[in-house]
Amino acid sequence: MNTQHTPLFCDLELAERIERAEAQLIEATARAAHRRLADGRGFVLPVAGGLAVFAGDDSPFNKVVGLGFGGVPTDDELDEIEKAHAGVGTPVQVELTHLADPEIGPVLTRRGYQLESFENVLGIAIEDEYDVTMPDGVVIRPSGDDELDRWLNLMADAVAAPDTQGVPWREEFPRDTYIESERDGVAAGVARYAVLRNGELAGGGGLRTADGIAQFAGAATLPAHRRHGIQSALLATRLADAAAAGCDVGVITTQPGSKSQQNAQRSGFTLLYTRAVLVKHV
C-alpha cells in the first residue's frame, strides 16, 4: 500500500460532510436499537443541523452529534433535549468539533456542560485503487451472517484488552452492551471484516460507505495477534473497498495519541479535527 499521500486539508465544507455522515450513522444505529428493544424509550431529535440521540441504556450511541454547521441551538431546543434525556435517566453528551460555530461552546458552558474528553477525526483522500499486501499468514475476508455471533464475541474480547498507548477512552461499556451495539451497527449497514492469522480468527473491523464518505467503524485485534501488521492490513483492505465503492474521503475516529491513531497516520491518514466531548448531568 502506498503511504505517500498529499495530506488532506479539512475546510468547513468537508467537516460538515463528515459530521453529517457521522450523524446519519448514529441515527441509523439508534433506530436499529429502537427496533430491537421495542420499549418506546428511544428518541432521535433534530437540533441546529445535528441530532440528539438516545438508543438505549448505556449505549455508546447516546449523544448529540453533527452540531456546528446549522446555526446555534436555541434555549428551547436545548430545554427539549435535556428534558428528554432526564426522562430516560441519562446525561446529555455533546460531541462538538473545533471547526463548529464558535458561539456554541459558550452557550453550552453557560448551561452547565463540562468538558470531559476529546477524540480525533483523521481522514484520507481515497485513491482510485490500492495494491493490498497481506502480512505472512494473514487473510482478511468479509464476515458472513453465519458467523455473526462469533464475530461479535471476538470483537468484545479484543476491545476488553485495549492498548494502553495514548489517552484512554473516557467510557467503558459492559460486554453485553458492546455486543448489542455492534449488532445494531450491523443492522444499520456496517459491513464486517474477519481477520485470520495462521488460520485462527484474530480480529475484525467494520466499514460504512455513504455519500462518498467511507467510515472506518471500529477495528480490534486479539492480544495474542497484535504487532503483526493486522491493523494496517485491515485499513488497506477497507480503503481498497471504499475506492471500489466510489468514495473520495475516508475517516476514522481515535483517541488522541493512541496506537489506532499511529496506525492510521502510518497508512496516510491526516488529523483533520478534534471533537470536544461536553457533558451535562440532568
Rank of each mutant, 00 (worst) to 15 (best):
I26H: 06
A86N: 07
G70T: 01
V277N: 02
G49R: 06
R35V: 13
M134R: 11
G56Q: 09
I104H: 03
D248V: 02
F216N: 05
L222W: 07
V65H: 01
G123S: 12
F173N: 03
A161K: 01
E127W: 08
A191Y: 12
G56P: 01
F173W: 10
A219H: 05
E127V: 07
I140P: 13
A52P: 05
E147T: 10
E19Y: 10
A210G: 09
R35A: 14
S260W: 01
T6M: 11
A276Y: 09
R192T: 06
G70M: 04
K280W: 06
R20Q: 14
D163N: 08
R275W: 02
A161G: 00
G206M: 05
H225M: 07
H281E: 12
G89F: 02
Y193N: 03
G105Y: 13
D241C: 00
R41V: 01
A187H: 12
Q93N: 06
M134H: 09
A28Q: 00
E147I: 11
A55Y: 02
T209C: 15
Y273D: 00
T274S: 13
V138R: 07
G89W: 03
A264S: 13
T274R: 15
D131M: 10
A28Y: 00
L239A: 03
E16K: 14
A156E: 13
Y178I: 05
T133H: 13
R208I: 06
R36M: 08
C10E: 05
L196K: 04
A187G: 12
S59D: 12
S267A: 15
L234N: 09
R150G: 09
V186W: 09
A48H: 05
E77L: 04
A15V: 09
E147M: 08
P162I: 10
D57M: 04
T3K: 12
R266D: 07
